[in-house]
Nucleic acid binder design. Structure first.
Ligand SMILES: [Mn+2]
Ligand SMILES: [Mn+2]
Ligand SMILES: [Zn+2]
Ligand SMILES: [Zn+2]
Lengths: 156, 156
DNA sequence: TATACGAATGCAATAGAATTGCAATCATTG
DNA sequence: CAATGATTGCAATTCTATTGCATTCGTATA
């Protein structure tokens, strides 16, 4: 693989171009702060909490990031995952999400060791039998799986 | 039905007797505060948050109730439900729960209108196919269903 | 009965995350 | 350039969970 110290420099140009395209495609003006937040969500390759993004972008303002994420959620760029018991994290939308309407019907895995929250996209539960209670109006079903993730299992 | 103003007086004696039995059966000393908390959990017929119990028992101390609930959870009298996104509530154990080990493998319904969290005990998901990812160690699966409850649907 | 000791309680304080208010700044348009 | 709305930064608030600690209570024992 050679000496790949930091390959993010080599393609910053196309990276920024892609980020701007993604923002504009969802009617979000590509401001510097929004580009920075989106860049982290793309390059970290995992779901991030507000606090994690805050640390990654220090000393950027927490509230600005907070509102940036709200904008992303509203415009279908990211959705928030509320894992039961743990805090919430943000995930890039897989595509097919639009303003206010998200497709996130899969379980989320919470590692009780490293606290990371990941999407189990290979474990859809569309096959789930909805409860036979016609009086309940169901908006959304969230499934949280708690345990130890592969990385932590390997280390221990 | 006649004039049933307050039928809680008539059977306070047997009520207290049952509460004491339940506490002692789970190795919890029946103190006044514990009896009051348990009484609310029994008579309200629904899952209660710490804040709700605090209001019901005003001016009882919040921290004492908090620690009482921790004791209940530890000793298999109640378990806490962490509904994704909403706060946590406490539910009486159905039986079969022991110290630290709870049986609560059913979805929980969160009403986005009245915020109440109820147990969907008739909708077990033991039929759920576990994800085919042997590297993941799974401790627990929680399912949260969000929508509008029957009471709120009827009122609107 | 008096003492001692651990359990239970009450109150103050802290921690953490989510959310709001508002003024300053920026970007765009007429 | 002036006006306007969007965006940002900082302070402050709200809520809940959690801890620390001194006091009180219950009970076993000398
Ligand atoms: Mn997801
Ligand atoms: Mn339950
Ligand atoms: Zn892990
Ligand atoms: Zn309701």
């Amino acid at each position: 693989m050679g000496h790949v110290i930091n390959n993010s420099q080599s393609n910053n140009y196309s990276m920024n171009s892609n980020i701007i395209k993604l923002l504009e495609h969802n009617d979000v003006k590509p401001t510097p702060m929004r580009m920075l937040v989106l860049e982290q969500m793309i390059t970290q390759h995992r779901n991030l909490s507000l606090t994690e993004i805050e640390n990654l972008l220090y000393p950027a303002d927490r509230v600005t990031i907070y509102r940036t994420l709200q904008t992303f959620v509203k415009n279908g760029i990211a959705h928030s995952i509320d894992a039961a018991g743990s805090g919430s994290v943000y995930a890039l939308c897989p595509g097919g999400c639009s303003h206010e309407a998200h497709k996130d019907e899969h379980p989320h895995f919470v590692c009780e060791n490293c606290k990371k929250i990941s999407c189990c996209t290979d474990f859809v539960f569309s096959f789930l039998q909805k409860p036979n209670t016609p009086k309940y109006v169901i908006y959304k079903i969230e499934m949280t799986i708690k345990g130890i993730c592969p990385e932590c299992t390997a280390k221990q």
